[in-house]
Nucleic acid binder design. Structure first.
Lengths: 186, 186
DNA sequence: ACTGACATGTAAACAGTTACATGATTGG
DNA sequence: CCAATCATGTAACTGTTTACATGTCAGT
């Protein structure tokens, strides 16, 4: 979809290797984009062939060589142009909600467990995001222009995470009326 | 991923044809699952081959024949079992946020436009969801069990939609400080 | 007969995941 | 030398999208 642009965006500030990119995706960009290392390596090669990235090999002491990729002028121009093109959005596919459509007395207990687990996961990501916000984006109005955009993406992640937490609580409360402890046999 | 289960879930209450399913997906299930009619037709055939769905042809007056699919007992059992299996979630991929990472003086104005447009779209979906809630889910605590699950999915959609609206406003406010009208030349 | 909407489908291309493979380097 | 880790990659498969194809009926 736009993996190429996601990679190039990550390379705006610093040159990175495939493995570094794969790791970074989970953090900074993971909120709204994710890719496996296999995908990234292939895309990097394509982008280098196109002339949008350059590559150079780096010897590291204590580790195998890595190949650093960096943006070329052509790459920067292509990326800047891309911003004006059509925007696509691929909505979430969440099996948990699909499972909720199948809620029954039999599986209510199990789904309570799944929702609790989801709550935990969201909580952890939220923690991470809030830490980043406090650390780097304390004063949004005075950020350099490009970082304002990054800040906004982070904000969306935080808002939605908080909302999801609240929803988990609501769901758990409603499910409590479904399983065993409901209708206490007059 | 779990298209099969999404289809079967849609067929729990009523038998539907491929085209009806494709239309329904956009409404009820579109919040967290989406599929094109091509995908649906292929999956329907597979599911019928497996014995999880049965098919029967129906002559309609005024329209071409359609093929109605319905759940078999085996299908219901398989679906009920699936709920206890592993849950996968495929997070959103949103090019708009990626574009925001590339915010600059050059494209700020364009992005303001895109965010306004996004706001409009979200607003409209929200309108639809709220109407459904008011119409069918006024008294969640007294819903039949399975509908409680459907209600919860709807609630998540509404909460996140509202949050997204608020975020759009925040983003537009911050972007206003980027484009033309900032730093009014002392 | 022609047009437009509806219903069903096929084929090819693209994107993404899963499983596996290779070499290099460090620590034991 | 062996195991563990890091970095890079390939191959096969699955899922999804895009583009196209076909037939039916209703209204003109």
């Amino acid at each position: 979809m736009a993996l190429a642009q996601a990679i190039m965006t990550s390379l705006l500030d610093a040159d990175l290797s495939g493995s570094e990119l794969a790791r970074d995706f989970e953090k900074s960009m993971g909120l709204f984009w994710q890719a496996s290392h296999q995908q990234i390596y292939q895309e990097l090669r394509k982008l280098a062939d196109k002339g949008w990235l350059n590559k150079r090999e780096v010897n590291q002491s204590g580790k195998p060589n890595k190949i650093l990729y960096g943006m070329t002028q052509a790459g920067r121009e292509a990326l800047a142009q891309w911003v004006f093109g059509p925007t696509r959005i691929q909505p979430t596919k969440d099996e948990l909600l699909l499972k909720l459509y199948n809620l029954s007395d039999d599986n209510a207990e199990h789904l309570v467990g799944e929702i609790s687990q989801r709550r935990e996961e969201v909580m952890q990501r939220l923690y991470l995001y809030e830490a980043i916000r406090r650390r780097h984006y304390d004063d949004p109005a005075n950020l350099p222009v490009r970082h304002k955009g990054v800040y906004l993406a982070l904000e969306l992640g935080i808002h939605q995470g908080e909302q999801t937490l609240a929803w988990c609580d609501q769901a758990l409360a409603l499910l409590a009326t479904v399983s065993g402890d409901s209708q206490p046999a007059r």
